[in-house]
Nucleic acid binder design. Structure first.
Lengths: 330, 330
DNA sequence: AACAATTGCGCAAACGTTTGCACAATTGTT
DNA sequence: AACAATTGTGCAAACGTTTGCGCAATTGTT
């Protein structure tokens, strides 16, 4: 048994001759090692756990793809759980993963998670963990995020440069880092150009499509002079667009639009929607690489890091007023 | 040890008193059973494997959601793999899952899978398995599929009833059951109404958005009289729509459109796209239920079954010529 | 009161690997 | 030629559960 095990793992103390014999026989018998037994003995399951709010929609689907690619290359299995934006479900997911003895956890917070207490259990068990996108902001934990602030800033600067002066914002829950930062980018861009930050031009919601419709109705009612909308995500922006069109307003001439996430449908609407691309796959790859590092070095060895990816503004018809030809790729 | 184990699993031969004591102590010590050890001993990992072509796009994302819901309820973990429509990757995924000692496998074939030989290994190991959506058609295997034939048939009947007489088809790879059946539904609907099946009105491809554009160009060139398109999926249909609009043709007056899958973006385009809904979550739930049955009863006990779900035609603007108000929900 | 049946508990083996250690055989060093 | 170092192999314990079986204590039956 021991010799076999060592031969298969290419141990240096086994002669080439016996290795050959073992390999050959293993092939003949179609021997498949039992990962469970190995996991039990070695105390590592070679499995990674991922918790995402949902996988419909481009963003998380692509992040997951990036995660799977790298994880599989490194010989790790991946277990994916959806919290469905529900804090209780998220906690259950984490418990499930811990019970499944995963070697590490990748997590993006649900919309409704306010209490992070349950994460203590992960610390207590010394399970490596990396947040991505929607993170608890702390120097104590590893995380990879987009520079959402920069994304919001650039998008709004672009709108201003297109001549817009009354730019509205459809914002998300402010306890989420991403929404807060995008909003801050919006605010700072306005300030940079000497424009006022008008509360009547800002509407917060959970950013579903119906929230976008409703928010837009509201904004148009209280600030009819608005000439652009920057939305914290694309789904809400589509809702807003529907309302704008129904009112007979032209896009981008009367109201210019810019969103966030570069969803698949952004190029399918009319006009096509300007949006901030989030480098989804890269985010997934980076997160899992950091996690693997933590796993291999031991979570106590390597200090927590926060990686920030730079966003990429994709300018499309919904915000392009000037006759300048569009240079950015769709 | 034994008493503890039995107490925790509520064994009948353990007195209520000791059960109480064990439970209490377990809680105090924050005892978490090691699933790996249990799995090794019991010979079942309580993990299910899922292989899908991809998870971006509404369909598979929702199927996966259905799968996770039921599987978690039944105490099973779920490992999801994407084949990225690649046969080699699909085979690797299956090997990974087998090595991870999953108790059962749910599989939807990739676009490029022609050779099913590697599936023999699953049979040989007696691992329960259920196909869904894209299946190998055989009475020997369990599967849950949509009645794609019926979906195609209904969609095309609807187009005909709207007054269309020259209905084109954007078809997918004919080795895939779903594409073949949708095409057959198209053909039979034409025949039922006494319309000819004109090869010049049919174009096959891999159904990406650019395939839809290209296919549409081609169809318009060889059959300018066409007055409707039924596409095997919605992505290709969007591509076709773009071409149609660019030519200045009106939808649905000049060309009516119907697709398949009820993607998220169907309600976001202009006009909104008529499409066949696939009961995604239900498909996932049914598939996993069948799999659990196979796992619990033993794969040799219960005979393979094929479940067929009925499609649901969602009529939207892209095909609605008459002034009749739309009754179907979007 | 003698025996059978039931109830409650614990020993020890088993699941299939990995790995520390001991030992034998070979090779190298003086 | 004696000893040390190296190389190759195998024994047996360990990982943390589950479970067959045996034994003791209790309860039920005649």
């Amino acid at each position: 048994m021991s010799t076999v095990s060592r031969a298969l793992s290419d141990h240096s103390r086994i002669s080439d001759a016996t290795k050959k014999r073992v390999w050959e026989l293993a092939r003949q018998l179609n021997y498949q090692p039992n990962q469970l037994a190995a996991a039990l003995r070695k105390g590592r399951s070679n499995t990674l756990g991922v918790v995402v709010p949902h996988i419909d929609g481009q963003f998380f689907a692509l992040v997951v793809k990036g995660i799977e690619t790298i994880a599989n290359q490194a010989g790790f299995n991946v277990m994916i759980c959806q919290s469905n934006e529900d804090a209780a479900q998220e906690q259950k997911n984490v418990e499930t993963l811990l019970n499944a003895q995963v070697d590490g956890i990748l997590l993006s917070l649900s919309l409704s998670t306010h209490d992070f207490g349950y994460l203590e259990e992960i610390r207590r068990r010394d399970i490596p963990m990396v947040f991505f996108d929607r993170v608890v902001e702390s120097k104590e934990v590893s995380a990879v995020v987009l520079n959402d602030y920069q994304g919001g800033y650039e998008a709004v600067c672009h709108l201003i440069e297109q001549g817009c002066r009354h730019i509205a914002h459809l914002g998300g829950p402010q306890h989420l880092n991403i929404c807060r930062n995008r909003y801050q980018g919006y605010a700072d861009a306005l300030q940079h150009y000497g424009l006022p930050l008008d509360p009547a031009l800002v509407s917060f919601s959970d950013l579903r499509i119906q929230d976008g419709r409703q928010g837009m109705e509201c904004l148009l009612a209280q600030a009819p002079q608005l000439d652009a909308v920057f939305s914290c995500n694309d789904l809400a922006l589509v809702g807003a667009m529907q309302v704008i069109k129904r009112r007979g307003l032209r896009i981008p001439q009367d109201v210019a639009l810019a969103g966030f996430s570069n969803e698949l449908f952004d190029s399918l609407t009319e006009p096509m929607l300007t949006s901030v691309d989030q480098r989804c796959e890269e985010m997934g790859r980076t997160a899992v690489q950091m996690l693997l590092e933590l796993i291999n070095e031991g979570p106590t060895k390597v200090a927590p890091r926060q990686v920030v990816l730079q966003p990429n503004l994709l300018i499309r018809e919904s915000s392009l007023r000037s006759s300048v030809l569009q240079e950015t790729k769709v």
